[in-house]
Simulated assay, not measured.
Amino acid sequence: MIGRISGTLIERTPPNVLIDVGGVGYEIQIPMSCFYSLPEQGESVVLHTHFVVREDAQLLFGFTDKISRELFRELIKANGVGPKLGLTILSGMSASQVLTCVQQSDISSLVTLPGVGKKTAERLVVELKDRLAKFAKSTDVPMPDTAHGDLPLNAENNAKQEAIEALTALGYKPAQAEKMVKLVAKPESTSEVLIRDALKSSM
């Protein structure tokens, strides 16, 4: 089990990052709720990880805080919730928002997430309410504004495209992802800000 990765962040393409550890690059998928708190490329980073081994792949999921990782592990224990859906849930909501929805049986908010239908949302509430009681006092994961002023036109278009690709990777249909990005797009927005705002607008 790989439980922690510490190294240099060399690539960040939501929802994936590449971290160099002693000359070895680890590809890690992380939820957008954690992506916003990553350092800049070239800087040191520490991620708490969850390793998944399948017949056709070995996948590494990373989180900037232990609470998000533990919540991810609880989510994928629920019937019908795999790692990809767990990642999507924690991309559309912060850890504390997921906990609130489960504790308050807020089915309507959960079903706004891609891949979460009414039955899945109801299962999450029923199966996780008691197990997530220990997380009730958890604080939200910080999501700082990552915009750094106006972007050139090409950079603006690239930011939109990266945001659309990231949302598609999280389970949204391409046309839906494009619509979400267009609704929140601003000339100065980076791809990470577009993704964050698009996910917020879908709630």
Rank of each mutant, 00 (worst) to 15 (best):
K129M: 01
I76A: 08
T88V: 06
S68D: 09
A136I: 06
I107F: 09
K129I: 03
K118I: 07
V81N: 03
I76K: 10
N79D: 13
Q104C: 12
I67C: 07
L124T: 05
V141K: 01
D140F: 02
C101M: 10
N79V: 05
L90M: 05
Q104W: 08
V125I: 14
K134L: 09
V116N: 00
G92E: 01
V141M: 07
L124Q: 04
K118M: 06
P83E: 11
H148A: 15
S96Y: 02
I67K: 13
K119F: 03
K118G: 02
K118C: 02
L90S: 04
S138Q: 11
D140N: 12
K84A: 12
S96D: 15
V111N: 06
S91K: 07
L71P: 07
M143D: 06
L132Q: 01
T146Q: 13
K137H: 12
K66N: 12
V126N: 00
T120F: 04
V141D: 09
P142W: 03
A136L: 06
T100H: 14
T139C: 08
V111F: 05
L85F: 03
D65F: 01
S68K: 06
K137C: 02
L75F: 08
L132S: 02
R73C: 12
K134T: 11
E70A: 08
L71V: 15
K137R: 12
T100Y: 14
T112L: 12
K66R: 14
L110K: 10
L110G: 09
V98A: 08
E74F: 12
E127M: 00
Q103V: 11
K129R: 12
L75I: 08
L132P: 01
P83K: 10
G86Q: 09
V141L: 07
T88G: 08
L71W: 06
F135N: 01
D150G: 01
R69V: 03
L128R: 01
V81K: 03
R131G: 00
K119S: 12
E70N: 14
R73D: 14
D106N: 15
T139I: 13
G80C: 01
M93V: 00
A147H: 06
V102L: 14
G92R: 04
L124I: 05
L75V: 06
T112R: 15
L124R: 04
S105R: 11
K66Q: 14
G82Y: 11
L110F: 10
L85T: 10
D140L: 08
S96W: 02
L113D: 04
D150C: 03
I67G: 06
K129D: 03
L85S: 03
L85P: 00
G80R: 02
V125P: 03
H148G: 11
E122K: 10
P83N: 09
T146N: 13
I107S: 08
T120I: 13
K77L: 11
P114G: 00
